[in-house]
Design a protein around this nucleic acid. Structure first.
Lengths: 132, 132
DNA sequence: CTAGGTGCAAAAGCTTTGCATCTAC
DNA sequence: GTAGATGCAAAGCTTTTGCACCTAG
């Protein structure tokens, strides 16, 4: 347990929303200037393994992460194309769906994800988005 | 309309399953040796725009593509972690779901995706997978 | 003739890794 | 003292792009 990791942990749990590895690097460095990019990239998979952080893939080249909440109910994401915000929505039926379609194929589900990409009407009409 | 593009089109429609840009490059070169990587990467977005090819993002760094079928019903994917195969499954309720959750947030849905990652029981038990 | 396509190689962007050094225990 | 963590820089991998050349119509 090193000082750098502590800074990373602290930065992670200060986050209330999704973040990228580079954003986490910045936040961690604000706490401990000696945190290096390599350490962030090496620590993130450990946090994911430990279920302290959840990896959220939204289909662009970059990985997103977020602090994991206590409950592990399946979550869907609504991703706003305009403000880049990611909304997490509980979607309990996903588990049932994954089980059903997988077993039809002779497979066992490991994980599932449901994502809706959307655009902001408010922004489109008034030029501002109160959500972002 | 150049010879290289024709080779790429031909290679695409010979495919019956998902493929990556690099795989398409190989297949296209088998038809016309002069096809370059740049041309494949420049042609793929055109094919996607024209709805001749569908882009399928399975959450890894690489993009997958597949020839687009006539019908445009929403599709879910089941991705086998063992054999890397991608199964396409019709999921008409996705559209309804996307509309519902988006409008709750004041957003208008653009697209949605539903993916199940699974593992192969057959492979795990007998060491072979008859599906791959 | 010329608008647009092509090939090559370099660059871009995120992530991983080799290696020598350092540090927590 | 030592197993494991760190920093730096280089490399990896897929995709994009600048530029000069070429070609279809």
């Amino acid at each position: 347990m090193t000082g750098q990791r502590l800074a990373i942990f602290e930065a992670v749990f200060k986050e209330s929303t999704h973040f990228t590895a580079e954003e986490l690097l910045d936040k961690s460095r604000a706490i401990d200037r000696t945190v290096s990019r390599a350490t962030v990239y090496r620590t993130l998979p450990i946090l994911v393994e430990s279920n302290l952080v959840r990896e959220v893939d939204i289909g662009i080249n970059m990985k997103y992460y977020m602090p994991n909440s206590e409950e592990d109910a399946p979550k869907a994401q609504v991703i706003c194309n305009d403000c880049q915000k990611i909304f997490e929505i509980s979607a309990p039926f996903m588990e049932w769906y994954g089980n059903t379609v997988s077993s039809n194929l002779g497979l066992t589900p490991i994980s599932q994800r449901l994502q809706v990409t959307a655009q902001c009407e408010e922004l489109r009409k008034s030029g501002v988005c109160s959500k972002s």
